[in-house]
Amino acid sequence: MVQRELSVSTRARAGEPVRTCVGCRQKGLAADLLRVVAREAESEGFALVPDPKRRLPGRGAWLHPDPKCLSEAARRRAFGRALRVSGSLDSSELDHLVGAVELSEAGHSGL
């Protein structure tokens, strides 16, 4: 028997939630995307905080854990619009997490 991976639309019909990445603007399953929320920082502005467990309160934006999607979202200033915040956004924590994910995936590809 041949097993095939179900497409996003087929899996979505099966009840899995679909979200849109703020970077590449492609639809994907929520399980494959990283939720990001904005938290008020000590200085003026907000900090982008990754929410891998999807439990933090507040409005969330969804992002593929890929540096290309992160840089595209930053270039288009998509986080401010998606999270409905204005002012400066500190993405250092998010940059660190996405970079760590990329490194771990690169380590597994050499197996």
Rank of each mutant, 00 (worst) to 15 (best):
Cys21Gly: 04
Glu72Ser: 15
Glu40Thr: 15
Ala78Arg: 13
Arg81Leu: 12
Ala12His: 12
Pro57Ala: 10
Ser71Val: 08
Gly45Glu: 06
Leu6Cys: 07
Arg35Cys: 00
Val8Glu: 14
Val49Phe: 10
Cys69Val: 03
Cys69Met: 06
Gly28Cys: 09
Gly15Arg: 10
Ala61Asp: 10
Asp32Gln: 15
Arg84Trp: 00
Leu103Phe: 12
Lys27Glu: 09
Asp51Glu: 04
Gln26Cys: 08
Ser43Gly: 15
Ala41Ser: 09
Arg13Pro: 05
Leu70Glu: 07
Ser71Glu: 13
Leu89Cys: 05
Leu97Val: 15
Pro57Asn: 02
Glu40Phe: 02
Trp62Gln: 01
Glu16Phe: 09
Gly28Gln: 11
Ala38Trp: 05
Ser104Thr: 12
Val8Arg: 15
His96Gly: 14
Ala47Val: 11
Val101Arg: 08
Ala78Thr: 02
Arg55Thr: 14
Cys69Arg: 04
Gly58Pro: 06
Gly80Ala: 14
Ala82Phe: 00
Ser91Leu: 14
Ala30Met: 06
Leu6Asn: 12
Val101Thr: 12
Ser43Met: 04
Leu48Met: 09
Pro65Cys: 15
Leu70Cys: 07
Ser7Arg: 15
Gly45Val: 04
Asp66Ile: 01
Asp51Leu: 08
Cys69Glu: 04
Gly45Tyr: 01
Val98Tyr: 07
Arg11Met: 13
Arg19Leu: 01
Glu16Val: 05
Glu42Thr: 08
Val49Trp: 11
Leu89Gly: 09
